[in-house]
Simulated scan of single mutants.
Amino acid sequence: MAVYTEVSFDEARELLRQLNLGELTALRGIEGGIENTNYFVTTEQDGRPADYVLTLFERLTSEQLPFYLHLMKHLAQHGLPVPDPAANRDGDILHTVQGKPAAVVNRLRGHSELAPTPAHCAAVGATLARMHLAARDFAQHQPNLRGLPWWNQTVPVVLPHLSTSQAALIQSELAYQNHVAASSAYAALPRGPVHADLFRDNVLFETGVLTGVFDFYFAGVDSWLFDLAVCLNDWCIDVQAGTHDAARAASLLAAYAAVRPLTAAERQLLPAMLRAGALRFWISRLWDQHLPREAAILKAHDPSHFERVLRERTRHPVTL
């Protein structure tokens, strides 16, 4: 959500007109995130203001994007509180701005809860389970592009930037995850479209009620357990120490299982997938730190955070 590509007021206004979303009155770049260019957009139609988010995709291609956009629309049509991409008169939801693929979605109300309680975690768990079940009949397929094959490709690239102890950890954990992925228990895990990035800053609440889930641009088909583990690794840890918060985790897991009970294979592999989730984001943050892109607004994430989480998950496995 950095600004890599500057969009003029006139260019944004023309796109909003094509989408029949009203007359543009305000355009503001969004700080935070590292993948795409995002702007808050306000329009006026029939005397009433409306808020949207304009996204220009900096890495994802026009061939990859229909999966993400149509998944959001599919979930929105199933009653999930997710962004709903706007279509032009031809029904297209993927557009072009500054020569780059772009989309406009409704801006969800609410704010992020960066210090979540067990109640917030329960709402997240239940919503994640609903998303998994609602996406079962989604027709399109795309693998998780930041899954195991990408880890295997990227670790050798970031390895020269690591200390001896960091290199040992990342290599041993990668070997372990390849071993897990070859197991029969892993093959038995239920799968489908997953969010794969359901962090605290990608969920909105209003007066304690979950009102929005957004940023689906890491979504792909993977195990539902991996998606749950990524979620637990952010919502249910102490941010400073990376340690497990048992009360929040119990609340999130119970709420998830009340909607979609976990299988025996999922219960067996939860510790391994918690480690996998930590490894995935440690690798990607190392990648972004050591091979950065220029941006007009850019706020990078600290890779050492998920190094701490991975070490904690390895030393203190969480079992069900």
Rank of each mutant, 00 (worst) to 15 (best):
S62T: 11
E63D: 08
E63Q: 11
E63M: 04
L65M: 05
Y68R: 10
Y68W: 12
L69C: 14
H70L: 15
H70R: 15
L71R: 02
M72T: 09
A76M: 05
A76V: 10
A76H: 09
A76S: 15
Q77A: 15
G79Q: 09
G79W: 08
L80G: 08
P81A: 05
P81F: 07
P83W: 10
P85R: 04
P85C: 10
A86Y: 08
R89W: 12
R89V: 13
G91T: 07
D92Y: 05
H95D: 01
T96L: 02
V97N: 00
G99P: 02
G99S: 01
G99T: 02
P101K: 02
A102G: 00
A103V: 05
V105A: 07
L108G: 03
R109A: 13
R109K: 14
H111S: 14
S112L: 00
S112I: 00
L114R: 07
T117S: 13
C121Y: 07
A122F: 07
A123V: 09
L128V: 11
A129R: 04
M131P: 05
H132D: 02
H132T: 06
A134L: 06
R136S: 09
D137G: 06
F138Q: 05
Q140H: 09
Q140S: 10
L145Q: 12
L145W: 12
R146G: 02
R146T: 05
R146F: 07
G147I: 07
L148E: 08
L148T: 03
P149D: 12
W151L: 14
T154L: 01
V155A: 00
P156D: 03
P156F: 00
P156I: 01
V158T: 00
V158L: 01
P160L: 01
P160R: 00
P160Y: 02
H161N: 11
H161D: 06
H161L: 09
H161V: 04
Q166P: 01
A168T: 14
L169E: 10
L169R: 04
L169A: 06
Q171Y: 10
E173M: 13
L174A: 03
L174E: 04
A175W: 12
A181T: 15
A182F: 11
S183G: 15
A188P: 08
